[in-house]
Write a protein that binds this DNA or RNA. Structure first.
Lengths: 133, 133, 133, 133
DNA sequence: GTGGTCTAGACCACT
DNA sequence: GTGGTCTAGACCACC
């Protein structure tokens, strides 16, 4: 069900990557309230990480109301779930692009080089999202 | 001279905020090599933080070649020079674009939307001029 | 694993001594990328110093690209790479040779004696291999 | 009498530069016990530095027995002065060359490049000492 | 006054 | 357990 790839090289916390992947899956794929998520132990084994890390991610999703825990049974897609509003998505994109552009400019790259780096990255993005063109 | 405001709400470390503020100021404002920065203690008082935190930030700026320390005198704007190798700059750009693209894709933006956001940001940014022609 | 001895008598800062020891160890001993270093707390206990001092030293090694930090796991030997630009390396060599030559000349050694001392030292030094061919 | 050039760019403390210059001058030039040194104020004006710095340097020379202070009159070359023994000179040269070689090798320079840098420095050494050839 | 180093101890995020 | 950040306060060298 969940296709998650963990990048251990970057600085992105593993638990955050899980949270974002689940959040994205729930927003785009055909999941219905009540559908089961992989168990903490199963996902941990699949990703070769510590179960605590998965539990941490699930706890955050529960707190945000996207999934529910049923003790002894597992985690399930929540009845009334909220995802990012369009406004929130815009806000987050703005913050991310600001951070990126500033860093790249301070590294003394020209705008065209910066655009090129982004193009290369987007052209073979592994996330399976929409592709350019 | 330096107008720095610290945001205590976000999770950005204080010392990082100082670093970014100074980098930004040096890139955009009319600072010349030899100009003095506020002393560690003075800036700490102004920002109501511990002098160690300011020292930490200044140390990072020294390492990146942007400012110089003269013991007993203070910190001063350094001659502009390129400290990092082209490989290292590429590596850092790659890391930054990876972080940005991942965040944007997880927010479910299409590649063209992402490029558009970057273009808008770059068109407003200060050029700053290359260190070497 | 790391045999570090701290000299409390001289005026060399403790954290610098750690930095130099680790650099030396990485250059001469058979350490491979991915190998773990002693944890900050462990090394601090071993050397009977404050963990902050070890952290300071490790942070400098991270900046120079010799080791990497993985939060929650520890510090590890990084892939060997060249972080600084050729200009920066030249600048640092110039600064070092300036300091050395000044000291030697003030000690009233003749140029040939100074060259001889350097030759003797270099003939005993480990080669270490270039990062790039 | 004293030809001193202060380098404010490097990390060498000014007072140390004065100490070494005087020490060297006393060892090599034709100074006799009882000869007067420039007054603290005069030397400070000549070198464009703070009188405290000169006083600091003179104090160290007094402590080491090379010069004497006569209150209200000034500083004078001491009656029975000691300079560095040959053994001490050797020891200091060894320490300096060790520091230099290590730094240069860690910067990934080849031995020939290191020797070349030293040669260039020695060939136009401004200290007026013996010249190569 | 300035910067540089070190200690002690706290709290946080991550695994 | 790990590293990351911050505070408080000390002592030093230098100007």
């Amino acid at each position: 069900m969940l296709e998650i790839r963990i990048a251990t090289d970057g600085n992105a916390p593993i638990y955050r990557q899980i949270v974002e992947h689940v959040r994205w899956a729930l927003a785009t794929d055909g999941h219905r309230p009540g559908d089961a998520l992989p168990s903490v132990r199963a996902l941990a084994e699949q990703l070769l990480i510590n179960p605590n890390t998965v539990a941490h991610a699930y706890a955050e999703l529960v707190r945000d109301g996207l999934i529910e825990a049923r003790t002894g049974k597992g985690y399930f897609v929540a009845q009334r779930r909220r995802v990012y509003s369009d406004e929130e998505r815009r806000r987050r994109l703005e913050a991310a692009v600001e951070t990126f552009a500033r860093e790249a400019l301070l590294l003394d790259f020209a705008p065209d080089e910066i655009r090129g780096a982004l193009d290369r990255k987007l052209s073979h993005a592994p996330q399976g999202g929409r592709v350019h063109g």
